[in-house]
């Protein structure tokens, strides 16, 4: 749990800083005054009911969605309209999607090695070697030359994680990575994520897997109606003896 704080890295600087961030979809106020700091190597799990804005929130961090007010600073770089900054931040953040979003026209190997080659200008040999290492890490090296369409959902999601890791990001964003999977396959993906958490990766995870949250998270954030309602370490969050916000309590009552 306390894995990050006594390591020797630059822990004093937060990896992600959000200050009074607001976002609207048209007239609809999706995110309201989100303020949050994520420390390096921290695993942050975001939970909340559907439509609470949690996905939108993490998508703002790598600028898949644009925030309209407030500040987001990732690894010291402020997200603005500056294209160069956006590119730099995206280079530092990996993202895993609910629907995997693998590139169906490329082999698993090419899916993973494309970005290092095109964005980081690695030689193909190096990129493929790295891709192979990552595939071994997520446990499916034998699938390297297949196309995504030939893999099961769990395998696809593991490839997606490998693809995100290939850019050697400092931050990993997970947007409900297990929601589209069969129950049998959820475990294999969660195992990969747990293994990742053990390597001190900074992770933001939107999930409904409470077991995972309880086991891996350093901190849990509960969001509702575009606001952060409550946050705390998992042992507190899931402790029925501690007093929660009524909305949190209602949510917890329903899922536990």
């Amino acid at each position: 749990m306390e894995n990050g704080n006594n390591q020797m890295m630059s822990v004093d600087e937060p990896m992600i800083i959000c200050r009074d961030m607001n976002k609207w979809f048209g007239e609809f106020h999706v995110l309201r005054n989100i303020s949050l700091e994520v420390m390096p190597q921290e695993v942050l799990v975001i939970i909340g009911p559907s439509g609470s804005g949690k996905s939108t929130f993490i998508r703002c961090i790598n600028r898949l969605e644009e925030h309209q007010d407030g500040q987001i600073i990732v690894d010291g770089i402020e997200l603005s309209h500056d294209v160069q900054n956006i590119a730099d931040i995206r280079r530092e953040t990996g993202m895993v999607f609910q629907q995997f979003n693998l590139f169906p026209h490329l082999t698993v190997m090419d899916n993973i090695s494309l970005a290092p080659m095109k964005v980081r200008h690695w030689a193909r040999d190096k990129a493929e070697q790295r891709a192979m290492e990552l595939l071994e890490r997520v446990g499916i090296p034998e699938q390297a030359y297949k196309y995504p369409g030939q893999l099961s959902g769990g395998q696809q999601q593991r490839v997606a994680i490998a693809r995100a890791l290939a850019m050697e990001p400092k931050i990993m964003l997970f947007d409900e990575p297990t929601s589209a999977l069969d129950p049998e396959m959820i475990k294999e993906v969660l195992d990969v994520m747990k293994e990742l958490a053990r390597t001190y990766m900074t992770m933001l995870v939107v999930t409904h897997e409470m077991g995972f949250a309880r086991e891996v998270a350093d901190r849990i954030i509960f969001m509702d109606m575009g606001r952060i309602v409550e946050q705390g370490p998992p042992e507190n969050f899931f402790n029925p003896d501690i007093e929660h916000h009524p909305r949190t309590q209602e949510f917890l009552d329903q899922i536990l």
Binding site: N62, A87, T93, M95, N101, K118
Partner: peptide
């Protein structure tokens, strides 16, 4: 699917790269 563009952006490909390779 819109997800293709997003995934490409998320791994850092530029607009032209996304168009060209994805």
């Amino acid at each position: 699917d819109r997800g293709q563009t997003e995934a490409a952006q998320a791994i850092g490909l530029s607009g032209w790269q996304t168009t060209l390779y994805i």
